[in-house]
C-alpha cells in the first residue's frame, strides 16, 4: 500500500443528471490512520437527499439497489465505491449536472470526521 495520511479519497467523479432526477458519485477511500473507521453519511447541496447505496445482482438476472447504513473502512485498507456496487446516491438533484461540471460533497466518518470533496462530473 502507498503511504499516506489520514483518510484519503482518490478518483472521485459523478454521473451527469438532470434537475429533479438522480446521480451517483464514485471514488476510492483509503484508511491510512491507525484505527478502523466507518463512512456514516454524505451531504451535498446538489441533491435533496444524499445516501449510501449499493447496486446488487439478484438471482433472476435482475439488478437492484439498496441503502446501506454505513461502510466499514478497516485500517490500512482501500474501499471502492464503483459502478454496479457501492456508491453515493444523489437523490432529486437540485440542478442539472453535466459533463465538465463539479460540485461539493462532504463525507462524514465516524472517527476521522469530515472530508470535503470537489466532485467532477463526467460521462
Amino acid at each position: 500500500m502507498v503511504d499516506g495520511d489520514g483518510i484519503e479519497i482518490e478518483g472521485a467523479w459523478a454521473r451527469p443528471g438532470s434537475e429533479g432526477r438522480m446521480s451517483a458519485a464514485y471514488f476510492l477511500i483509503t484508511n491510512f490512520t491507525d484505527e478502523d473507521d466507518r463512512l456514516l453519511s454524505a451531504e451535498s447541496d446538489v441533491a435533496q437527499n444524499v445516501e449510501i447505496h449499493e447496486s446488487y445482482e439478484q438471482e433472476n438476472d435482475m439488478v437492484g439497489m439498496r441503502e446501506l447504513e454505513s461502510v466499514d473502512i478497516p485500517v490500512q485498507s482501500t474501499i471502492r465505491l464503483e459502478q454496479g456496487g457501492m456508491h453515493i446516491m444523489l437523490i432529486q438533484l437540485t440542478r442539472s449536472i453535466s459533463d465538465g461540471d463539479s460540485f461539493e460533497l462532504t463525507l462524514n466518518f465516524e472517527n476521522y470526521g469530515e472530508v470535503v470533496l470537489d466532485i467532477p462530473v463526467r460521462l
Partner: peptide, 17 residues
Amino acid sequence: YTHCPDICSFITSNLKK
C-alpha cells in the same frame, strides 16, 4: 429509467462510447 443513477447511467454512457 431516468431515476436510476447507477446501472442505467452506465447503460446510457456505454452506448455513447
